[in-house]
Simulated scan of single mutants.
Amino acid sequence: MSNSALDSNKQAKYWLQRIHELDLQQPVRIMNVCGGHERAITMAGLRSALPKAVELIPGPGCPVCICPEEDIYEAIQISLQENVILVAFGDMLRVPVNVHHGEVRTLDQAKGAGADIRPIASPQEAIDIARQHPQTTVVFFAAGFETTMAPVAAMIAQGAPDNLCLLLSGRLTWPAVAMLLESGSPGFDCLVAPGHVATVMGAEEWTFVVKQYSLPTAVAGFYSESLLAAFYSVLRQKIEQRLFLDNCYPELVQQQGNPSARKQLQQVFNIIDANWRGIGMIPASGYALNDQYAAHDARQRYPDYRDMARKRAGQMPPGCDCAKVVLGKIYPDQCRLYGKACTPRNPVGPCMVSDEGACRIWWAGGVRQSRSKIA
């Protein structure tokens, strides 16, 4: 084992000990917004290591899970009906939509039906494919949060090929948390904010949780010692009622974030009201290309499918409780379909598709049966 790994283990044990030394008089619910956090928590077994009074709740931190059904349907139809190459991040290819039996319900199935659909891992791959096929329109179905949208914005700002256009389904993270807090029953007492988003947007973006809603908040990275430090921070804040925004990921997160990335996001995108699958419309939570870059907007090149797609707009599939999982209302294994009709091999809901989906993470962590109790 390397010295860095030994140091990490030592720090993790230190923070875990500090947490167990806290005087927790009542249960405390901590929401972790990020799917990467949930994966790290589950794979490291942090839930079982923490005091029983501490409840860790996965939140709306999976962009694949909340991508609106109408956007996926629109991508499917464009790929099937138009002479295009459609590219998307790999997880998006398996997300199902609600259609009649026998109809194409995923991008994977559209590919099987003859559409030219290619999984990619980065915006640069979309540029490369567009340059390799200059006579064909390449549609980049771009779903993701701020961390993903920043390189997408850079791709456009720096001069994307003329034959590359975006079918955009980007979202901002903080408005979903604000929506939960505004509901009056958010279901959590403390917040651990996503370190990757804060790396781009800055830790300051999460100060509203402390100032407006008086909730202990900390930004965390994606390894056990950072997460445990954040848990300790918010628990101590809760006990002492001394609230502040704590940055437990200082090696990458600055107060102002990444100025260059923020500038490109502002340059390329407008902020719009946006639909979140299973949640509904959240004000000022989506990205859209501004008029300067309209030539790269797939919805302007192929406007007919937008109206068709809206007719297909819906919530989660029948019996699927992904919306409650995303909102932190239930745990994944409390979904009625979890481990029964819905498995990674045959996902019914989007939370079982992505590596950042809570259901898929819990399955990978060894939870294979449903409790089937809806909170």
Results as ranks from 00 to 15, higher is better:
151 P>K: 04
80 L>Q: 09
136 T>W: 08
178 A>W: 07
88 A>C: 05
185 S>L: 15
153 A>D: 04
160 A>P: 03
132 Q>C: 07
157 A>T: 05
181 L>N: 00
190 C>V: 10
164 L>E: 02
78 I>M: 13
96 P>C: 11
149 M>I: 02
172 L>M: 06
185 S>R: 13
98 N>Q: 12
138 V>R: 00
156 I>V: 13
183 S>L: 03
170 G>P: 01
112 G>M: 13
191 L>A: 02
158 Q>I: 05
196 H>W: 10
179 M>I: 15
159 G>M: 08
102 G>P: 08
196 H>V: 05
177 V>H: 01
106 T>C: 09
122 S>Y: 12
143 A>S: 14
108 D>S: 15
176 A>K: 06
149 M>L: 10
118 R>P: 01
115 A>Q: 04
185 S>P: 09
79 S>V: 09
153 A>I: 00
174 W>M: 15
178 A>S: 12
143 A>R: 02
119 P>Y: 05
100 H>C: 14
75 A>D: 02
186 P>N: 07
93 L>A: 06
117 I>M: 05
170 G>Q: 02
116 D>S: 14
121 A>F: 15
93 L>C: 11
121 A>I: 15
155 M>A: 09
124 Q>C: 00
72 I>R: 00
110 A>K: 10
169 S>R: 04
162 D>K: 15
183 S>I: 11
79 S>E: 11
105 R>H: 14
140 F>C: 02
188 F>H: 09
101 H>I: 15
74 E>I: 09
88 A>T: 01
191 L>S: 05
99 V>L: 14
180 L>P: 06
176 A>Y: 00
194 P>G: 09
71 D>M: 13
116 D>P: 10
138 V>G: 01
131 R>E: 12
70 E>S: 11
132 Q>T: 11
171 R>M: 07
132 Q>H: 14
109 Q>E: 12
71 D>F: 13
146 E>S: 03
89 F>I: 03
126 A>C: 08
89 F>K: 04
164 L>F: 06
145 F>S: 06
82 E>H: 08
190 C>H: 02
188 F>W: 12
149 M>N: 05
166 L>V: 00
190 C>G: 10
83 N>W: 10
123 P>I: 10
172 L>V: 05
185 S>M: 15
108 D>L: 15
132 Q>M: 15
156 I>G: 04
174 W>L: 12
196 H>E: 11
84 V>I: 09
79 S>M: 04
73 Y>A: 08
101 H>N: 14
99 V>M: 12
158 Q>W: 12
136 T>I: 13
83 N>P: 11
172 L>C: 03
138 V>H: 06
